[in-house]
Design a binder for these strands. Sequence first.
DNA 1: TGATTAATTAACGCATTAGTTTATTAGTGG
DNA 2: CCACTAATAAACTAATGCGTTAATTAATCA
Lengths: 112, 112
Amino acid sequence: MDSSDQLDATFSALAHPARRAILARLAQGEATVNMLAEPFEMSLPAISKHIRVLENAGLIKRGRHAQFRPCTLDTKPLQDIANWTDQYRPIWDARFDAMDQLLNQLKDPHHD
Amino acid sequence: MDSSDQLDATFSALAHPARRAILARLAQGEATVNMLAEPFEMSLPAISKHIRVLENAGLIKRGRHAQFRPCTLDTKPLQDIANWTDQYRPIWDARFDAMDQLLNQLKDPHHD
DNA sequence: TGATTAATTAACGCATTAGTTTATTAGTGG
DNA sequence: CCACTAATAAACTAATGCGTTAATTAATCA
């Protein structure tokens, strides 16, 4: 999987509220599939599939203890998308700077 | 559109390499649909649809000059996803801290 | 006006996604 | 062994996504 495919998989995995909620839950610590499913109206197989999607994107890792498959968060792909968005930070900073300048001008009318 | 739907739309829009490439091009400045389409093998209508997806996600704004519909980048949704990923930053920082500690221990074996 | 250019819409095919219910695998423990 | 729990697989439906080609809208310009 090249890095573009990896970004595809990550963005696509994050494009569903249930999957983002699962990640938020895992930020609190390890959890089983049933624990993860509990807050949702959805069936267990549906959650199982969402977990699979997250796992394929590398966002979660899984262990085995007895008949449980505990899930843990892996933040690596999140760091990758953070780095990706950082490409654009100069642009929104630039706009902010322009706004900042404008505000300063308004506050300090001695400038021309 | 609530903020979760907005995130859905943004992540989903970013989950395609052509759309990310279009954003990268627009980071250089305004461009028409034909200009945006030029680097791709895809048909023009296909690009037109990708642009529509980006526009619906709020990632681009469009103008009108004669028969052209120039596109410009709007970074607001990118800032939103940057803020979203920042939720998880403490976690990967924590892991980095743990790794850092471990490395220090290895370098400095006087610790117990 | 008629030809040309820019872009979108329409109509279609095909693959993928998201959910369901039912069935199955695999491990625990009486 | 049998019953129970955790989780996945199978099979299906409905909706969405991504691409195509052909047709259409809208503006320019000779």
